[in-house]
Computed example of a mutant assay.
Amino acid sequence: MRVLLTGWASFLHGEATAGDALSLRAVGAALTAAGIDHDVVWSPGFRPGTRHLPDAPPSEYTHVVFACGPLHGPQVRSLHERYASCRRIAIGVSVPDPDDPAATGFHRIFPRDDGVTPDLSLAAPVSKTPVLGVVLAPHQPEYGGAGRHDDVHDALTGWVAGLDCARVPLDTRLAHEDWQRCATPDQFVSLVSTMDVVVTTRLHGLVLGLKAGVPVVAVDPVAGGGKVTAQAKALGWPVVAAEEAGDTALLDARLKGCLTTAVTPPPAPSLAGLVDELAASR
């Protein structure tokens, strides 16, 4: 017996959701525990360099297991055609139309929508990873030719994409009618406080991260240093220069330091000078 483990995350034009991947993980772990030989196939768009459907000839398998998602559409039907010689089983799936050939092609279906069966993803082990809030500065024309925003952001986001972490895009801009943005600064600082680390090229990404007690990987997108560098100096916090943004070893070191550093919110600035200035004019 040899099983080919598939799902929507196996199709070239499918999609890989967290639930899909965890369901495949759960089934794979169960097969391994039972001593059942199996391979998992992934979409080349999601996991290049792994086994894909074209790499899994039907002659090498006795069974095909399809885990998670709805049984419908030509991609699922194509499994029945390609693996017609295999016994085909679906588990943890939705069956919107029991008469759809995508569903009737399976020899056995273990559905999840019967009102009593928990979703497969609940059976999969997960590992906690750091959560990084990413706050990128917009183009800042006031810096003229010194602005290196595009190059810095390409390097920084490329680095972040390669980390084993959860990435959360954050925007300091507020909006009352856009549900994807915070409506008040209190909401934004509350959101930032849930992050493990903030990665930013924006002054207020640095300042509000520290205000929320969250360590910050601060990168100045301006060659020679701009307001991020000046504010980092005022707060006694390290900053990566624009010229160093492509140094992944440096970024790794800063992130490692952030993950092991407890942050004390910086002191508030004094407004006494402004008050005295205005008071003297009364």
Rank of each mutant, 00 (worst) to 15 (best):
I109C: 11
A18H: 09
K256T: 15
G28F: 06
S193Q: 12
T129K: 14
D37G: 13
D164S: 14
V198K: 01
A146L: 14
P44H: 10
E177K: 09
V240T: 06
A56I: 07
P44W: 04
L24P: 01
A223R: 10
P125F: 09
E81A: 15
T260C: 08
T260S: 15
G14F: 01
I91A: 13
A262T: 12
G35N: 12
D151K: 05
C258K: 03
G144H: 11
W237F: 07
V65I: 15
E277K: 08
C86S: 11
L174I: 11
H80R: 09
D37R: 14
Q180R: 15
T6A: 12
P238M: 07
G115F: 12
C258T: 07
F66L: 10
E244I: 03
L79M: 09
S85H: 12
A166R: 13
R167A: 09
G213P: 06
L5V: 11
D220S: 03
D151M: 04
A242F: 02
A280R: 13
V199L: 02
D39M: 08
A268V: 10
T200D: 01
R148C: 05
K256C: 07
Q140R: 14
A21T: 11
A90S: 10
F66Q: 04
D151A: 15
P269Q: 08
G205W: 00
D151H: 11
G158T: 02
T157K: 00
G28V: 10
A161H: 10
R282E: 12
R112E: 11
A218Q: 02
K227D: 10
R254W: 05
P96A: 13
A279Y: 04
